[in-house]
């Protein structure tokens, strides 16, 4: 199988640099500290009260998963927002475009680079998530569902990063705009539903399908049998959601976010293509 040359080159360079091991070390240190502190507090409590709160172990799982999810949303745009603009800054993009590589190959290579770093990070954090298996309550299927929500969030944030990178000539501007777009998707849609939904604009709830936090929340809610989040949505927006379960939110959210990611990648390919008619330039 022929590997995408862009991905191969980036993988070679990143495996040589200090950045990748540092990211993995820092992320896993944060996750481990959070998990160990949580376990320490449980054990201390058990020593005092002489009873074990098994729900605390699920809280540990929720805590570690939430931290990991937030890290994905924060790290992936940083990894991808400089990808195309960095090529422009190095003046290597035109060289790549004069080879057999198509704009699609270049964009996919860049996305693969960002995602592979993220997947490495997710896999390396497995042992910390697996702490919860010691006490039970979470199955492999639950972990797979969680992983899917992680991956869809990573694909979406990576695609947004690449799209911004293709639109802006400077990596710093592309990074800032990527974070703004991610904030608009995560916090903006939630705020719109919270305030718009209670003001009678219940249709705004569908905006949540674009929010990467929703599949994650739905996955967690389904695993923990906690439907509180969904009922909160019903409170905000009326009864139109009564037939939607947490599972529906999970799958609908993942599908919509992958579609949005596809649209971002298509826009990026279009931006990278030197032969398209340019209407505006940054």
């Amino acid at each position: 199988m022929k590997i995408n040359p862009i991905y191969w080159q980036e993988a070679r360079v990143s495996s040589r640099s200090f950045r990748l091991p540092l990211i993995i070390f820092l992320c896993n240190t944060i996750l481990s500290l959070a998990a160990l502190l949580n376990m320490y507090s449980m054990v201390t409590q058990a020593k005092v009260t002489a009873e074990i709160q098994y729900s605390s172990f699920l809280n540990l799982y929720i805590l570690v998963a939430c931290i990991e999810f937030v890290m994905i949303l924060l790290i992936v745009p940083a990894l991808t927002a400089g990808s195309i603009s960095g090529e422009r800054e190095r003046q290597t993009l035109n060289l790549l475009l004069t080879t057999r590589m198509t704009p699609m190959d270049i964009v996919v290579g860049k996305l693969m680079t960002g995602l592979s770093t993220m997947i490495l990070l997710i896999i390396s954090s497995f042992p910390i998530l697996a702490l919860v298996f010691i006490y039970g309550g979470v199955t492999i299927k639950d972990i797979v569902l969680l992983l899917m929500s992680f991956i869809s969030a990573a694909v979406l944030s990576g695609s947004i990063g690449i799209c911004c990178s293709s639109m802006f000539r400077k990596s710093t501007i592309a990074t800032v705009v990527s974070y703004c777009v991610m904030a608009a998707l995560v916090l903006g849609t939630a705020a719109a539903v919270r305030f718009g939904g209670s003001s009678g604009f219940s249709f705004l709830v569908w905006l949540l399908l674009l929010n990467p936090g929703v599949p994650f929340g739905a996955a967690m809610g389904e695993q923990l049998g906690n439907v509180r989040r969904i009922s909160v949505l019903q409170t905000w927006t009326g009864s139109s959601l009564q037939r939607l379960t947490a599972g529906d939110w999970l799958w609908l959210g993942i599908i919509m976010q992958l579609l949005l990611a596809g649209a971002c990648l298509w826009a990026a390919v279009n931006q990278v293509n030197p032969r398209r008619k340019r209407r505006w330039k940054y």
Partner: peptide, 14 residues
């Protein structure tokens, strides 16, 4: 066509 531009266009870390 092989293209040599008026800039180097090299990846320094390779």
């Amino acid at each position: 066509i092989g293209y040599v531009p008026d800039f180097f266009g090299v990846y320094d870390n390779l």
